[in-house]
Structure formats: C-alpha cells, structure tokens
Design a protein around this nucleic acid. Structure first.
Lengths: 210, 210, 210, 210
DNA sequence: GATGAATGAGTCTTCATTCAT
DNA sequence: AATGAATGAAGACTCATTCAT
C-alpha cells in the first residue's frame, strides 16, 4: 500500500525491473537472430512477421514490444550485422597490419567469409538484401553509408602508409578501390559461389605485380 | 481532338501499321520499361502491378497477356537489363582492347556509368535489386550466374593476353578479380554516390604500380 | 491495336466506362445501406469491416474501391444521413409553414420519426453514434456543425416571422431553443423509447400557454 | 529524493493510513477519474486499457482488481457521472424551486454547464459517449433509462405544481419536454459550442411568452 | 483481343486480459 | 497484494490475378 518512490517511479520499479536489462538484450537478440535467419532464407519482404514470430518462439505481442514495426526489425537486423562485421574487421586489421593491397585483401576476405558463415545464416546474403533495401529506406541508407565512410577512412590511412608520397586524394582513391574489391567479392561469392577469398587475392596479386 | 494512335504513336507518326510481331515486341518493351522505372524507384516488392499497369498506360489484362505473373515480369526486367549491359560491354571491349587491368577498368566503368543512367532510370539500382531477388529466385540466380560466367570467360581470355606466361587458373583468378572490381564499383557508387569510375580506376592504378 | 484517343483516354474508355455512373452510385448506396444497418445494430467501432462486407454482399476489395478506409465509410454514412434528413426537413417546412413553436415541433417531430424508421434501420441511432464520433473526428464534427448551423439559420428566419418585433439575437436564441428541442427529442426517444413526438409537442404547448 | 507515498499522497500529506475500505474507494475513484479523462479526450473505444492504466498511475493488474473488464469500467465511468449529475441537480432544484419552465431551465442549464466543466474533463462529452454506448450495452441503457425516468418523475411533480389543473398525462408531457430541452442543450453545446445556457433559456422565454 | 471491376487470401499490427514472479 | 511481460485472437487493409463483357 505504502510505496517508496523517486521521480514518480517506485523503489520496486527502479531497483528491480521485472525483467533484467540482460534478459531484455537476450530476447532482442533472440528475435534478431530469428529474423536474420528468415531474411536470408526468404528475402526481406517475402519473410512475414508470422515467420519471424514462429522462428523466435515468442508471441506476436512480445516481438512487437521489442520492435515497433517490421521496418524497424529489418533496420535493426541489417544495422547490427553491419556493426558486428565492422568490429570484427577492425580487430583483424589491428591484429595483423597488412603491408600491401593484396596482403590486406588476402587477410580480410577469408575473415569475412569465416565470419559470415556463423550462426546458421550467411551474412553476405544479409548484405545484399540490405543494399537493396537501402534504396528505399533513407534511414538504412544513411546507416550503411556512415559505416562504409568510416571504414574507408581507416583504409585510406592504411593505404597512405604503403605509399608515403601519396596525397589525400591518392589515399582516398586507393581506399575506394579496396572497399570496391571487398564489396565486389561479397557479391561475387554470394551470387556465383565459386569466387573464393583466395581466388580474389591471387587475382589482385597477379595484376598488381604485372 | 481525337487521334488514331498505336503504342503511344499517332497514325501519322507511324504512317503504316507495322507487322504484328514487331508491335508485340514494342508493347513488351513498353511494359518492361515501365516496370524498370517503377522497380528502381520503389523496389521490386514495393512496386505493385497496379503501379506498372498505370506507368505502362495499358490495362491489367493487357499486361498479363505479355507476362503471366509479377515474378515473370521481374525476371524479364532484370534479365533484359543484363542482356543490354552485356551487349554494350562486349562492344566496348571489342572497339578498344585494353592493355592492362587499370586500362580495362578505366574503360568499362565509365561506359557502365553512362549506360546505366539512360532512359530515366538507374541500371545500377536494378542490379542491386536483381542480386537481392536472385537469393530466392532459382531461375533468376541461374540467369545471372550464366551471364557472369560468360563475361568472366571473356575477361580471362583478355587477362591471359596480358600475361602470356599465365596458366588457366591464373587467368581465372584475374578474371574473378576484374569482375569483382566491376561489381563492387556498382555497389559502391549506388550506395555511397561518391565513388566515381575515375576514383576506382585511379585507385587500381596506384596500387598496381606500387 | 489502333485506338482512337483524346486527352490520353481511349474512345472506349471515354465513351463506355466498364461500369456506368449510375451503377457506381447504386453500388455505393448498397454499401452505405449495409454499413448503416450494421452501425445502428452494433455501434460504429464494434462493427467490423467484415460485417459490412458481408452485409453488402460484396468483396473486401470492392468495398475498399468505393471507400478508402473505415473512417471514410463512417463519415459517408453519417454525412449522407444528415443530408437526407435535411432535404426532408426542408421540404416539410416549405410544404406547411408553421405558425408557432409548438406547431413547428408538432410538424417536424413526427416527420423525423417517420423518416428515421425507414429502410430497416433507425436514423436516430445513427445520429447518436454520429455525435459521439464527432468528438474525435474533426472532419465529421465540421460537417455536422455546418449542417446544424444552416438549419438553425432557417429556423431563425421562421421564428423571426412569428415575432416581428424581435431582433437578430432574439431570433438566434429562439432558433437555438428549437434545435435543442429537436435534438433532445431524438435523444430521449432513442434512449427512453417512450417519448413520442406527440408527447413533446404537447408538453411544449402546455408550457407555452402557461 | 525518496518519498513514502500512497495513492499519490506522501506520508506527510496523509499523516496516517486511512482505513482499508476508504483507501479502496480512493483507488477506485482514481481509476475512474483517469478513465473519464481518457474517454472524453479519445472516445470510449479509441481509449485503450493501457491509456487508462498509464493515466491512473497504477499497474494493469491493479486496475483489473478493481474492474473486471473494460466494459465494466465504461459502465462505471458513465454511471457514476450520471449519479454525480443527479445529486447536483436534486440539490439545485431543492435550493431554489423554479416557478416556471424557463425559470427552471435558466436555473439548471448553467448548473450543468458549471458542473460539467470541472476536474479537467467535460461531462457533456461523457454523456454523448454514454448514449452512443447505451445502444449496444443493455446494462448501460437500463441504468440510463432508470436515471432519466426518476428525474422525469421529479420534473413532472414540479410541472404539475405550476399548473394545478393539469392531470398526470399533462405533467408527464411537460416533464418529457423539460428533459428534452436539457438533453438537447447538452447535445447542442457539445457539438456547436455556441449554444450557451443563457441562449436556450432566453429562447424558451421568448417562445413561452409569445 | 482488350478492359478494369471484382475477388479473397494473406499481411501487419493492436490490445484486452492473464499469471508467473 | 502488486506487477508488467507475455499472449494470440481479431481487425483493417492490400494486391496479384481473373473473367464477364
């Protein structure tokens, strides 16, 4: 009956939420994983909310209490994939600094391939779906653009270290080429299947040394 | 003022009725153009048949007499875009044989950019939509794969001519890299907007000569 | 193949719409009648679109091709009821000009009662639902307000003729009282059932002559 | 700053815990007030239980321990409004017995207007919502009917005192007219906004003395 | 052949109510 | 007794496709 309150929230509410923040994050990820699994199997718009609800083993209401619409869920699924990928790429580059373009590509591509295949779904497919969706979702497009811009800045710094004489425009051009190769490799391996990380790196080495 | 028209052209413009098969092809292309325009503006699945029907200035029944389903129309729209692109690329390569990778990229990328922008819609966007769709449409995936395989074979032959000592595997690896760069450039320019053909070609030159 | 066109519409389209304007209006009324029937039986928000669709013997798509949302249908159902009522009231007043307040009420109330009961649904109930809905629908509120304002202007003119010495404010006050009696009679008869037009008119006569 | 509170009042405001039954009534009214506030702002069916729960500063479970369903809450909100209004009207009539119809209306209408506007929500709107709801809720309809019937009996007694010669049927007819005017005034002021108590009373006086 | 009104299964989303904690 | 996360049935609306004219 009597309640200890602060800022309109009871002690009970403030100190012991019915569900812990960890549990909330767990549920969120459970839904996100289910969504990504469905998305890469069926496509973004072919996947129905019912599919995701079923796959996440939750009720419709529960899913909608974590994501307020299907668009929201699509955005979150793609954006978090991007985040995860970025974190992994950063770490990989820091751990073993590449000495040349084909060295870098030979380092990152296998890392991407390995990373993409985890958890039962293929991140490369999510990427293709995300690019497609970015054409109509301003929000997603902006998120993807800022991710790639940040990554390209890192690549530019690295490329500049390979050619001390290069100016900013040179570094930028090289970064664009490097990102192009990474993106293109994702497309080609997702579509063709037969373009391995080794193939691409080797091709670049051959042409570089020509 | 009443006017006698066919496929949007007046009797006086057309002068005489064309043969039936030609007329059919004109109609088909009229629909396909309308569809591509809608697709790149709205996305494949956001575009309704009604949108396409309206844009093509035909009736629902008429459109359905040329394409038996929306999937059919999507397939045709993407596949014919691919065909057109292929024809253009072949011609470009034949007209001015490239002497090196960066020469080739510097030749093809501007050609693609220029080609993509015609007719009021951007072919690069169609490409992204097509890749995305290819994940669930076996038929489309196969069509795209065979196109890229054929194109890669051409590239391999060309790359081999640059390095007479290279074996089949070398040529294949180089072809894969070249296709990767072309595909990646399409992605990057579609998503980021700021990656011009010149940037990419320049980046490749810088890294090749490193 | 060849078409006779004017302003972008073919001869066929211009001259012979698939469905005549009459037929369209008929369908519209068919839906509106079904909706009013459902509304007065179940209430505005308890009635589902499915109910209306079933009652109108049409498909969901057909109903939605005439009314773009449930709100639209609610508005149309109430607004057309208002229109019909207004037309009837105008005619009644014109046919037999009242000489006094109780004369007018004794004339209009039975007319309303008789009019309200037609077609298998009770217009008085629709009125109550409409007033309630007007609280949240700006559009409906405005429509109802302008109807009542116009009607009140007519009443003011009539009342002024009863008391030649009265100024505009007097006429306005009398018009407000007359409208009040009509509206109140609708409420009381809808809720209580036992308040007949005769009762009300008689009460007014008794009090007027007091 | 932590505070010990009960029903929104701090320990220091309450000083000592009230008895349990009183506390329960306080809670009930807290919920009812929240509900009425929501109802008149949003409408009966547009208001969600979540809205009421939030506005009452209680939990879902708590609200459901006082009212077993939304229908129950709607009924209680309307019925208690009716009770309050009745109490006030009784008192007003007892305090200053009216000598004529326009005297009575001139007395009651301002009292209703003043009463309706208190507590941050407008009782007139609740009335319209209640009448609308009464069409489908047997229980609510009966409650409203019995309220109005009792009130009409009081009015009949009063009207009879104005015309000693009148029989029961005369008194009943006058009571019906008086209730009609009160109900109609509520409708007109709620919908039109511009029909003040003074306007109505004045109109009645003008027509009565005609 | 051409037309476009009609179909109705299927989609996303909401919300009254419950019940484990 | 109190909480609020979870439930899932039900609702509004869409849209690919057909077929009577």
């Amino acid at each position: 009956m009597w309640m200890l309150v602060k800022n309109g929230r009871s002690f009970y509410q403030s100190c012991m939420p019915k569900i812990s923040e960890e549990a909330r994050q767990g549920r969120r990820n459970q839904i996100l994983d289910a969504a990504r699994l469905c998305f890469q199997k069926e496509g973004l718009h072919e996947t129905t909310m019912q599919d995701i609800i079923r796959a996440s083993d939750l009720s419709a209401g529960a899913v909608y209490s974590y994501f307020k619409s299907k668009d929201d869920l699509i955005f979150a699924a793609v954006a978090t994939s991007l985040d995860d990928l970025r974190t992994m790429l950063d770490e990989t580059m820091r751990r073993a600094p590449a000495k040349s373009a084909d060295d870098l590509i030979g380092l990152l591509l296998p890392a991407i391939t390995k990373f993409a295949a985890r958890d039962g779904y293929d991140l490369r497919r999510i990427a293709l779906l995300g690019w497609s969706e970015a054409q109509r979702s301003e929000r997603l497009r902006v998120a993807i653009q800022s991710h790639y811009a940040a990554f390209r800045a890192d690549l530019a710094k690295l490329a500049a270290s390979w050619r001390p004489s290069s100016n900013a425009a040179d570094a930028d051009a090289m970064a664009k080429l490097l990102l192009t190769v990474l993106l293109g490799a994702v497309v080609q391996s997702a579509i063709m299947g037969d373009a391995t990380a080794e193939d691409i790196a080797r091709g670049l080495r051959l042409l570089t040394q020509a």
